[in-house]
């Protein structure tokens, strides 16, 4: 594996990734008129995030049990409107505790 090959690969990956992010932001600078398209773009974040969260969250830790416990914790904390950082950290804390218990029991 030559350094030149890895450098070329890095450049190709970075270039393609950047284009997918940059082109819409740079090309679409005006306000979109169509009410349907604007409604669609309004709902895109929610559809994207929910699709990325489930079922992937269940496989994001060492065991599905700890992940499920972390998920329940995150849902409860978020329901009561806690901040992004506190929800993220407390769900990680619950995962840590559950996996600790799993090892001890």
């Amino acid at each position: 594996m030559s350094a030149g090959y890895i450098l070329a690969c890095t450049a190709v990956m970075a270039g393609v990734t950047y284009l997918t992010r940059m082109l819409p932001l740079v090309l679409c600078r005006g306000r979109i008129r169509s009410r349907f398209v604007r409604s669609f773009l309004h709902y895109v974040p929610y559809a994207v995030l929910s699709a990325m969260t489930l079922p992937a969250v269940l496989y994001s830790t060492g065991s599905m049990l700890s992940a499920a416990a972390g998920l329940v914790c995150a849902l409860a904390m978020a329901y009561f409107g806690r901040s992004l950082l506190s929800v993220a950290l407390s769900s990680a804390g619950v995962v840590f505790l559950v996996e600790l218990l799993q090892k001890l029991l």
Partner: peptide
């Protein structure tokens, strides 16, 4: 994912 849930 916790952060995503906090957003949603």
């Amino acid at each position: 994912y916790g952060m995503f849930i906090a957003i949603l």
